[in-house]
Design a protein around this nucleic acid. Sequence first.
DNA 1: GAGCATACGTCCGTCACGGACGTATGCCTA
DNA 2: TAGGCATACGTCCGTGACGGACGTATGCTC
Lengths: 115, 115
Amino acid sequence: MGNDQTPVPLTPAVFYILFALAGGDKHGYEIAKQVVEDSQGRVRMGTGTLYGSIKRMLADALIEETGQRPAPDLDDERRRYYRLTEEGHRALRAELARYARVVAVARDRDLLASA
Amino acid sequence: MGNDQTPVPLTPAVFYILFALAGGDKHGYEIAKQVVEDSQGRVRMGTGTLYGSIKRMLADALIEETGQRPAPDLDDERRRYYRLTEEGHRALRAELARYARVVAVARDRDLLASA
DNA sequence: GAGCATACGTCCGTCACGGACGTATGCCTA
DNA sequence: TAGGCATACGTCCGTGACGGACGTATGCTC
């Protein structure tokens, strides 16, 4: 679909991963759980989507792996932690702006059921 | 990505087409122009995406072709007009609810720049 | 010891995307 | 009057996202 730099709209997978990480650094499996929560269970990412998206987002520099880990007694050495890059923040803000605009237009056109 | 009946999230193309048709019946080319407008020029659908999506949406009964056409002097016989089905309305409402929820959570987390 | 949650990942079939291309009409302008 | 652009439909096909199956491993609970 049309765009400029980081394509807009983002794919839902990329968007939800950025969204999850905006709330703090997380490892892969934790991101997946956060997405289920943020979407009220409506969105469940397959592992292929999750790890495939992470790989692409690392390549696109939307996220980066952190060296910081929790205290060893709370940690699990298998985990890999990620954080948003500045570019990732920018992409998320742009996408959220698109979402907000859609919702605003929908309100204008009386397409929204709830308050 | 995870789902129930009509997959949630919708693809952006399907979403924007539903959104455009919620404002009234339109023909293909008109939908494309509406999407550019609704997205403030940020989203431009290729013809493959547009007509491919329409075909899939007809098959999924999200939209249907209408027999009603404008007055002959305002019409163009090449056009094919579409309208939302009840199922299409439902899918659009569900997706808009998801959008609205994301925006609300984003506000809570102070991720939104604007007011 | 079976089963599930946690945690990483690959593999590969399916399908959406989107630009190139094709066809056609009508209008405007150089 | 030929060229170019907007309008309007569509197909074709390469690229790439998606997502479940599968694989590996640890630790807990029943």
